[in-house]
């Protein structure tokens, strides 16, 4: 465990002392902020419009959770994760192989599980950091707005569950990124393959829904897109948690076999 943590700590040190992660996070927040701003602006325009035309029943349906936070998290942040996380994870194993520093890991008493676990832990910590950044948007809303009828402007249990959902999707993207990083020495190739794989699991739902019968149901279920909505809407779904955990477990297993294979073949 200590070895695993040492590997994770070293990766995090590299993440936090080189500009790549910061640039990626800055771009991530820039895009997310622009979408956040457009949703908030739209919200304000809608409420003004409904006030002017005296449509109180529509006004009453306006809330930050449904109109800003959920569409931001489900519609955009998760898509950004799909593209950003392979960029963050691409160096984890590919770079070790290219610069042959992997020989250090292979010639010291470190098991492949410790390598994979440490690398993944560092990636998951980055996901956690990016998820934490997403907390700023509901905080801004909490400061700027107010609720009707005594309660706050936001349903925080839904917001926090949404963040958990973001984290789970991010953790899944990171696991795929780590796996693709283990199959090649070329970081760019690793990132591109990672994005392709994730994109495939994203669009799989569309394919599955077009098909009838068991195949359609299986494909729909296998798609990441099928499982990202519950949390953002405020439902804790054990099934979705199991889905993401299974996805991560499978990716980490395959990554482990790739690392282990260096010793075998």
């Amino acid at each position: 465990m200590r070895t695993l943590l040492a590997i994770a700590r070293k990766e995090l040190k590299v993440y936090f002392t080189t500009p790549t992660a910061y640039v990626v996070c800055a771009l991530f927040t820039l895009v997310a902020s622009v979408f956040f701003w457009s949703f908030l602006k739209r919200f304000m325009l809608d409420s003004q419009l409904f006030l002017e035309v005296q449509r109180p029943e529509l006004l009453e349906q306006l809330n930050f959770n449904d109109r800003v936070i959920t569409p931001l998290y489900v519609g955009y942040v998760q898509i950004i994760f799909l593209f950003v996380l392979p960029l963050l994870t691409m160096r984890l194993l590919a770079e070790e192989r290219r610069t042959r520093t992997v020989e250090l890991l292979l010639s010291t008493p470190v098991s492949p599980w410790q390598i994979v676990g440490g690398k993944y832990l560092s990636a998951v910590t980055m996901v956690l950091a990016m998820t934490a950044i997403c907390l700023i948007y509901p905080l801004l809303l909490e400061l700027a707005g107010h609720g009707v009828g005594g309660s706050g402007p936001l349903d925080w249990s839904t917001v926090l569950l949404g963040l958990l959902g973001l984290f789970l999707v991010g953790a899944t993207c990171a696991a795929v990124g780590l796996l693709t990083s283990s199959i090649t020495e070329n970081q760019i190739v690793a990132a591109v393959i990672g994005m392709m794989v994730l994109l495939f699991f994203w669009v799989l739902r569309g394919v599955g829904e077009g098909l009838e019968g068991t195949l359609g149901a299986v494909l729909t279920y296998a798609s990441i897109l099928t499982h990202i909505e519950s949390y953002a809407r405020g439902i804790f779904s054990l099934g979705d948690l199991i889905y993401f955990a299974s996805f991560v477990a499978l990716c980490l297993f395959l990554t482990h076999r790739m690392v282990e294979s260096m010793r075998w073949a």
Binding site: N63, N65, H146, V148
Partner: peptide, 8 residues
């Protein structure tokens, strides 16, 4: 049931 409305 619907979410409590928010105003800004």
């Amino acid at each position: 049931r619907q979410r409590g409305a928010s105003r800004v």
